[in-house]
């Protein structure tokens, strides 16, 4: 009798140990995914980031079109304009993911329950969703007000995807730092993330100009720019994952 009870106890211990061990291996992905889902749910409830970002891009594109009022604009200038709108629209909303946690006082419980890199991954997924939403709103609206004849979509869409990824990766890391500051968060977010985003902006504008033009050499350069934007995304994601722990736990 006693032997059986001991063995069941051991079995119980084994199963609890297995239960403790098992989520640890699976939990990173689950944690990141749950944080992403939670952020989406909160965002859909308040629509704070989405509202500010969407309104920003709509008003900026309309104001630009009104100010130019049909004046002929070179395609290179259009490429620069579209990326400036995308960049500032994204910057108006990307800090929200971390600032909201600090303001609501939920950051501490998040620090205790999830590994730091999983928090970064979850917030990155949310910001990626936000950036791609901004692009989905801005680009069609832009091409309605300022039509671009003969766009190479096979070049332009990869630029938007790779550029959006780099933008979200760098901005998510900077947003985690900005959330810890005491004052002037939105101005500081632009100041701090701008030098980091400059290489992205230059490559993205040059590549987009290539996708908008019909000149063969520019199109070849656009291909190289897609490669540079992808490298930027990989470098920024890796650097953020390595350094996020120091920003998040201090």
């Amino acid at each position: 009798m006693t032997d059986v009870s001991i063995s069941t106890d051991e079995q119980k211990l084994d199963t609890t140990a297995a239960r403790l061990n098992e989520p640890k291996t699976a939990s990173w992905v689950t944690c990141a995914w749950e944080i992403f889902r939670k952020d989406i749910r909160v965002e859909l409830r308040t629509r704070y980031a989405l509202g500010s970002v969407a309104l920003f891009s709509v008003t900026t594109v309309v104001m630009m079109a009104a100010a130019l009022s049909g004046a002929p604009v070179k395609t290179e200038v259009k490429a620069a304009l579209i990326w400036v709108v995308l960049l500032f629209a994204a910057l108006s909303g990307l800090a929200r993911a971390f600032v909201r946690e600090e303001e609501a006082g939920t950051a501490q419980s998040l620090r205790l329950t999830a590994p730091a890199t999983a928090v970064y991954a979850g917030k990155l997924l949310f910001n990626l969703a936000l950036v791609f939403t901004v692009e989905a709103i801005t680009v069609p609206l832009f091409s309605v007000f300022m039509p671009i004849p003969g766009v190479r979509y096979d070049l332009f869409i990869p630029i938007l995807i790779a550029g959006g990824w780099g933008l979200a990766a760098a901005a998510t890391f900077v947003a985690a730092m900005i959330a810890q500051t005491t004052s002037g968060k939105s101005a500081l977010f632009a100041i701090v993330s701008f030098p980091v985003l400059m290489p992205l902006l230059m490559a993205a504008v040059q590549g987009t100009a290539g996708a908008f033009s019909q000149v063969a050499t520019f199109e070849a350069r656009a291909l190289a720019d897609i490669g540079q934007l992808s490298i930027y995304g990989v470098v920024m994601t890796t650097a953020s994952l390595l350094l996020f722990e120091y920003v998040w736990h201090d």
């Binding site: 980091v196 290489p199 930027y232 920024m236 650097a239 120091y246 920003v247 201090d250």
Partner: peptide, 18 residues
């Protein structure tokens, strides 16, 4: 800590990429 993390983040990536 945050300033050090930003310094590494920016100085490691930006000069190489630009």
């Amino acid at each position: 800590a945050i300033a050090a993390a930003y310094a590494i983040f920016a100085m490691a990536a930006v000069p190489a990429l630009t």
